[in-house]
Amino acid sequence: MIVLVNVSKEKAKATRCINAEYPDMYGHYRESKFTQLKHHWFWKMNFVFDEFAPSHNGYVLFLEEDYYASSDLIHFMKLMIQLKYNACKKCDVLTLGAYLKNSYHHKIGNNVYKEVFKAKHNMGFAFERNVWLKIKSCAKQFCEYDDYNYDLSFVYISLQCINPYLMTMSVAAPRVFHIGECGFHQKSIGCNKLYETVLL
């Protein structure tokens, strides 16, 4: 397999790239090491709902290995589920994380918001099988959307394929924190500062 990165469309055709007609919006061709992240996310959802727990219709909470969960995460999620059924029936996704550095838990600790699902809602989210079925019905659009990131592709299908688009109930004060600021997408000095802040 030939991996093409920054080549012209003509060179891509000359090397018989099967995707020569379809570079991304910047004229680049997809690299498997990046694209696999997005497709692994979709595989993971499929595995959990269709293989691992095919009869489970309740919520599934997705946490990544570089997340730190608060001690009241499960309790607060249960409260959100009750609120969803009583006051936010159109909320498809529960978002328990946020990228806030300072969330002032003592002032806004129990507040939640109803919002259109956006990429910022990709941390510590949970949804039921009925939402997975909506996502799965848009598999082609998800896989073919011109982006490497699952969260941007997820937002795309929510707005372009799922009708009505996905709504989330998100926390004002996060119960899930991202402690791996350095990693696949970002490499910088001092990337463990958030981790130190969360644990103090």
Score class of each variant (00 low, 15 high):
Ile2Ser: 15
Val3Asp: 15
Val3Thr: 11
Lys9Cys: 10
Lys11Ile: 12
Ala14Met: 05
Arg16Ala: 12
Tyr22Gly: 05
Met25Asp: 12
Met25Gln: 10
Gly27Phe: 11
Tyr29Asp: 10
Glu31Trp: 03
Lys33Gly: 10
Lys33Cys: 10
Leu37His: 12
Trp43Asn: 04
Leu61Gly: 02
Phe62Val: 02
Tyr67Gly: 01
Tyr68Met: 06
Ser70Pro: 00
Ser70Cys: 13
Leu73Phe: 12
Ile74Phe: 12
Ile81Leu: 04
Tyr85Pro: 00
Lys89Gly: 04
Val93His: 00
Thr95Asp: 12
Leu100Trp: 02
Ser103Tyr: 08
Tyr104Gly: 13
His106Leu: 13
Glu115Lys: 07
Val116Thr: 11
Phe117Asn: 00
Phe117Ser: 00
Gly124His: 00
Ala126Thr: 00
Arg129Gln: 15
Asn130Gly: 06
Val131Tyr: 02
Leu133Asp: 15
Ile135Asp: 00
Lys136Met: 12
Ser137Tyr: 03
Cys138Ile: 05
Ala139Val: 05
Ala139Tyr: 07
Cys143Ile: 06
Tyr145Met: 10
Tyr148Gly: 04
Asp151Cys: 06
Ser153Ile: 00
Phe154His: 00
Ser158Ala: 03
Ile162Ser: 03
Ile162Ala: 01
Asn163Trp: 08
Val171Phe: 06
Val171Ile: 07
Ala173Val: 04
Arg175Leu: 09
Val176Gly: 02
Phe177Ala: 04
His178Gly: 00
His185Thr: 14
Lys187Pro: 01
Lys187Arg: 11
Cys191Tyr: 06
Lys193Trp: 11
Leu194Gln: 09
Tyr195Lys: 13
Glu196Trp: 03
Glu196Phe: 05
Thr197Ile: 13
Val198Gly: 00
